[in-house]
Design a binder for these strands. Structure first.
Length: 569
RNA sequence: CUCCCGGUAGCUCAGCUGGAUAGAGCAUCUGCCUUCUAAGCAGAGGGUCGCAGGUUCGAAUCCUGCCCGGGAGGCCA
């Protein structure tokens, strides 16, 4: 509809002026302004040095008459308001009602190949609440992208090498010694959580006493983690085995937590794989490219990427003095590999603490001669938990973090997902546990689900009373729904496509949450203001047709959020 | 010091690609269950859109400066 009005206006304006302007058509906020509105007259008035209202008059008189258009009016300073005919304004609704599947009104004409990378937290412990937000967001965005007709791959980048991995290995190693009755001092910079003990138990089950220290006395004298690592590396040639084992155990736990949270990754990309050659390792290939294009320099014994050439504040270390590549270096190679795999769009979802990291990655992408415009990075701000009006303290260091699993156990998957998604990603989030667990209208999730369940219950009641819903009769009589609350729902349902389009364009999810809340509210109003199971069959069928449209729309929205739509509550 | 995010009703937040009287929910107050799910609905009160300039026919929205809150600035990841 929007496009029809747009092209009609464009055609008309071309008759009046040579000037080329983009015509904007928007939905009106209020019925008295019609269905659609455009401000072209006001914009054009400036160029042509004419009075906006006169110009609008001129445009309207040469629009011609169209059967889908009831009338066109000038209003305010020079808005052109379009009032659609009844048939035209109901066309969307009818299409929605008659469609077999859940109707998704916005689809790309040419599908895009999209890679979305999210969560990607270090496999050194359980996934916690902060990661949960990114997980919910990434999975919902994926749903939106897929439903919009694209091919999407969801990827998790596993940091399975470097310092943190060694620290994980050491932590497990120490807890493992304890299982043999050896009392050791456990350094502060090791991972304190009890989950390490569980991993140690699994290690013992798989490897028995393979990693047991023989020279205990000498080891006990060491109390500093770096020294411990040196000792271990000297005495256990295959310590890597232990590290890899520990990482695998953690990844398994992360994966199962995510699955429980309805988050699924198609590929798990190991950082270490960048260094393993099938032919030539990715990392080597990438660093050679950078060297060949003169983007690396040597200083203080280390190799630096000249990111300041690309707008970053300063150059960044690429390969350390000790010969080890930095995390950043791996990440460049990783991004290089993403591009190599041939996608139309690369989406990264990062924690807000990484924002300073983006300029250098962009710089590297540019240095490699890749198209930086297809790389979109979305930052997700932090989450604070609030219980009884007070901040719940969370510190990863002290092992006091709240795990995603415990959050799910407390508030449920539906509620947790909704609360994570109902806020703009780049806004920090106060997660109120009391509201999230409430089972009344304070909790928007229950409110929306209740609307859905109520509709299902009405459908059951209809059958119970020996009546049937006649879809054809319903669609033919939609015009009978002329009560204010009814026509408001009808136009609101139509605006669902705008919400999706907007969310898709901005790569945001929260508009859908707000929309569902509002739609549910309008439904509850409708439900309370009149008897749905009407004596008059024409009216009754029209109302049930509308209910079906509401139901499908709620279902479609909840599907994007991966939140369940219960038929009974 | 530099960069990022935010400042809108008592509270939590939408709105921000400039548009018509600035919106929800919660909380407060007043009503509504012999009738399809009261896990609900109707109504009322509540605003210097952080401050000051600028651009514009028109600014919560764009630009500049400032103030306040949070975060980031490793040869950590």
């Amino acid at each position: 509809m929007k496009k029809d009005i747009q092209s009609l206006l464009e055609k008309t304006i071309s008759k009046i002026t040579e000037n080329n302007i983009s015509v904007e058509v928007l939905r009106t906020k209020s019925d008295i302004h019609g269905d659609w509105t455009s401000n072209v007259a006001m914009i054009l008035a400036k160029d042509l040095k004419k009075n906006p209202r006169d110009l609008a008059d001129e445009i309207i008189s040469s629009l011609g008459s169209h059967n889908w258009l009831d009338k066109v009016e000038i209003a305010g300073p020079g808005f052109i308001n379009f009032f659609l005919s009844n048939d035209a304004s109901l066309s969307y609704l009818k299409k929605l009602i008659k469609s077999k599947d859940s109707y998704f009104p916005f689809v790309e004409e040419i599908p895009k190949k999209i890679l979305i990378e999210y969560v990607s937290c270090n496999p050194t412990g359980p996934i916690h609440v902060g990661h949960g937000r990114g997980a919910a967001f990434g999975s919902a965005l994926t749903n939106l992208l897929i439903k919009s007709g694209n091919d999407v791959i969801q990827e998790y980048y596993v940091n399975d090498r470097g310092l943190q991995s060694e620290t994980l290995g050491l932590s497990v190693f120490l807890r493992y010694q304890e299982l043999f009755g050896i009392e050791i001092s456990f350094p502060e910079d090791c991972y304190q959580g009890d989950y390490i003990k569980d991993t140690a138990i699994e290690l013992k089950r798989s490897f028995q006493d393979k990693f047991l220290i023989s020279d205990v006395d000498r080891f006990l004298k060491i109390d500093e983690s770096e020294e411990m690592k040196k000792f271990i590396n000297k005495n256990f040639k295959d310590f890597d085995l232990l590290i890899n084992f520990s990482i695998e155990v953690e990844i398994k736990k992360i994966r199962s937590d995510l699955e429980k949270f309805r988050v699924h990754h198609d590929t798990w990309f190991n950082e270490s794989s960048l260094y393993k050659p099938p032919k030539k390792s990715s990392f080597l290939k990438t660093s050679e490219k950078l060297k060949a294009t003169d983007n690396l320099s040597i200083k203080d014994g280390a190799s630096w990427f000249k990111s300041s050439d690309y707008g970053d504040e300063k150059d960044r270390v690429f390969i350390r003095e000790n010969g080890e590549p930095t995390y950043f270096a791996s990440d460049i190679a990783y991004h290089d590999s993403k591009y190599e795999r041939g996608f139309d769009l690369l989406v990264n979802i990062w924690g807000a603490d990484h924002h300073g990291y983006l300029p250098r990655i962009k710089g590297a992408v540019e240095a490699l001669g890749l198209n930086k415009d297809i790389l979109k990075t979305i930052f997700i701000q932090f989450v604070s938990l609030i219980r009884d009006g007070k901040l719940v303290s969370m510190s990863t260091r002290a092992g006091e973090f709240i795990t995603l699993r415990s959050l799910i156990d407390e508030v449920g998957v539906d509620s947790a997902r909704f609360f994570f998604l109902a806020r703009k990603g780049d806004q920090s989030l106060d997660f109120d546990l009391n509201i999230a667990t409430a089972e009344d209208k304070n909790n928007p999730v229950y409110y929306i689900q209740y609307a859905y369940a109520r509709i299902c219950s009405l459908e059951k009641e209809l059958i119970k009373r020996g009546m049937n819903f006649d879809i054809e009769e319903g669609c033919e009589n939609l015009l009978q729904l002329d009560q204010p609350q009814e026509s408001e729902i009808i136009s609101f349902i139509e605006s669902y496509q705008d919400i999706l389009e907007q969310s898709y364009r901005d790569l945001e999810i929260h508009p859908i949450c707000f929309y569902l809340r509002d739609l549910s509210s309008k439904f509850h109003t409708f439900y309370n203001s009149e008897v749905i199971i009407d004596e008059d069959s024409k009216k009754r069928n029209a109302k049930f047709a509308l209910l079906l449209a509401i139901k499908k729309t709620i279902k479609s929205g909840l599907d994007v959020l991966s939140i369940s739509a219960p038929e009974k509550m």
